[in-house]
């Protein structure tokens, strides 16, 4: 993040009670994740010990301390989606992307995450890629959807029998 953007955020929250979390949220929104350097600057800027800043940043699942993939895939593992087979869809995505949930793919094109209830239980099992929802996901459908984001490449989707 440009230092000036961060300085601006720090200026906005300096001295206000309860401002650490909003400051971290704004900083992350700017740069995508919170680097050690960013955390240090926030700690100095707000006059909050680094240990506390780090403690807060690691406590909440919303904060990321490492770079993230370009497209975020959120697989809902809420109860409604779980009973309708979210596990299989997740397993298939992990297999296709070659990463476990909570991680970016090696080329940083995708970020695979799990969430608890997207609020669209009528779509269960539901996944969300960036801002788009996809419902009734099975191991077969997730492959086809990934293709849209890879730009037609890779060997996702249903192969033709025999040839």
């Amino acid at each position: 993040m440009s230092t000036s953007a961060l300085t601006e955020i720090i200026e906005r929250y300096r001295g206000k009670p309860g401002s650490l979390i909003p400051a971290l949220q704004k900083a992350q929104a700017q740069m995508g994740y919170l680097s050690g350097e960013t955390l240090e600057q926030i700690s100095k800027g707000l006059g909050i010990p680094f240990s506390r800043v780090f403690g807060v940043a690691t406590f909440y699942s919303q904060f990321y301390l490492s770079p993230r993939g370009k497209h975020t895939i959120k697989v809902c593992v809420g109860t409604a989606c779980h009973v309708r087979g979210a596990g299989a869809a997740l397993q298939a995505l992990e297999e296709k992307l070659g990463v476990k949930a909570g991680n970016p793919t090696e080329d940083l094109s995708f970020q695979l995450e799990t969430v608890a209830c997207l609020g669209t239980c009528f779509l269960a099992p539901a996944i969300m890629i960036d801002k788009d929802y996809y419902g009734e996901q099975t191991p077969k459908t997730v492959g086809k959807i990934l293709k849209k984001y890879i730009g037609g490449g890779a060997d996702a989707g249903t192969p033709d029998p025999e040839e």
């Binding site: 593992v77 809420g78 109860t79 989606c81 779980h82 608890a116 209830c117 609020g119 239980c121």
Partner: peptide, 11 residues
């Protein structure tokens, strides 16, 4: 609203 399968308050 933390229950992972509930969306009343959200609605």
């Amino acid at each position: 609203e933390g229950d992972p399968g509930a969306f009343m308050d959200r609605a």
